[in-house]
């Protein structure tokens, strides 16, 4: 009987990315590196649902939300923002080593996002222009978390869609590996009955972007810059070819680099 129990425990541990929470709540830490904190604001927007979620998880460290700040180990470290300062990069590595699962929250963490538009080589010029000469910079570069450590899952978006965050957490709590939607933004657009931007002769990264955002930007009349991250089998070169017929090279480059200057897309 004892051997069976041990075997069961080992198997459940192995079944998913090493996380099976038996009766006790997973210990979660929410960290934010340099960013706008808008994805955390989206978590608060969950309101009552977030409170219900708190019955299933234990947030033991969350600077923005509470004074309580317990040290690792964590079952899940949720990280928002791009590590720009050296200390943030070091902390990220520490968190990776001491958390069973590491989740990137939002475009800055997952892709580098808006801050990564600034090329590393240009930072020096801008430090001087913005802060004046003699300023001792604190930042190194704005890169996604994956430039430094392995990420187990990304909750995408700029900002995230709070329901996609819930979906991922629910999957984890159910003992599953969190999964992506497996379709592009195009499906979200069809559901919303939006006109196709590409057919209208406008740039759009939707066809190669992971869905789940509800095509909220295109529905509002804005462009899709692909903040939900690239799909696994994205046919990037085909989309770039279509772009050649729509816009000049510079405009297309600007378009791709909104969220993807460090994701290998542009």
């Amino acid at each position: 009987m004892f051997a069976l129990t041990v075997l069961f425990l080992i198997m459940t541990k192995l079944r998913i990315i090493g996380i099976k929470f038996m009766n006790n709540k997973p210990k979660i830490a929410i960290y934010d590196f340099t960013d706008c904190e808008g994805c955390e604001v989206k978590l608060v927007s969950l309101g009552k649902i977030f409170k219900i979620l708190l019955k299933k998880i234990d947030i033991i460290n969350w600077r923005l939300g509470q004074e309580r700040a317990e040290n690792y180990p964590y079952d899940i470290a949720i990280i928002e923002g791009a590590p720009i300062r050296k200390e943030e990069v070091e902390l990220l590595k520490e968190l990776r080593q001491n958390s069973r699962m590491l989740i990137a929250l939002g475009a800055c963490a997952a892709l580098g996002g808006i801050p990564s538009i600034m090329p590393e080589a240009d930072r020096k010029i801008w430090y001087e222009k913005i802060y004046g000469s003699g300023y001792a910079p604190k930042g190194i570069d704005a890169k996604p978390l994956s430039a430094y450590v392995k990420i187990d899952f990304s909750v995408h978006g700029c900002p995230i869609d709070e329901n996609e965050f819930l979906r991922a957490i629910e999957q984890i709590l159910a003992g599953k590996k969190p999964s992506y939607r497996g379709h592009s933004v195009c499906l979200d657009c069809k559901i919303k009955e939006n006109e196709c931007r590409i057919i209208e002769g406008k740039l759009c990264i939707g066809p190669i972007t992971e869905g789940g955002c509800g095509a909220i930007c295109v529905s509002g009349g804005s462009p899709c810059y692909g903040c939900f991250g690239m799909r696994e089998e994205a046919n990037i070169s085909a989309l770039k070819k279509i772009f050649e017929n729509i816009a000049d090279k510079k405009e297309a480059e600007r378009y791709f680099s909104m969220f993807h200057s460090r994701s290998g897309l542009s």
Binding site: T34, D35, G38, I84, M118, Y131, G139, A142
Partner: peptide, 29 residues
């Protein structure tokens, strides 16, 4: 203040009127 410098004024230079898309990302609050 221990925020990293995102250098938004530098990010904006070289881009088009889409500034109003970029600057909200300064602050999610």
């Amino acid at each position: 203040t221990h925020e990293g410098e995102r250098l938004f004024e530098g990010i904006l230079v070289g881009r088009a009127e889409e500034a109003y898309w970029i600057t909200p990302r300064i602050c999610g609050v």
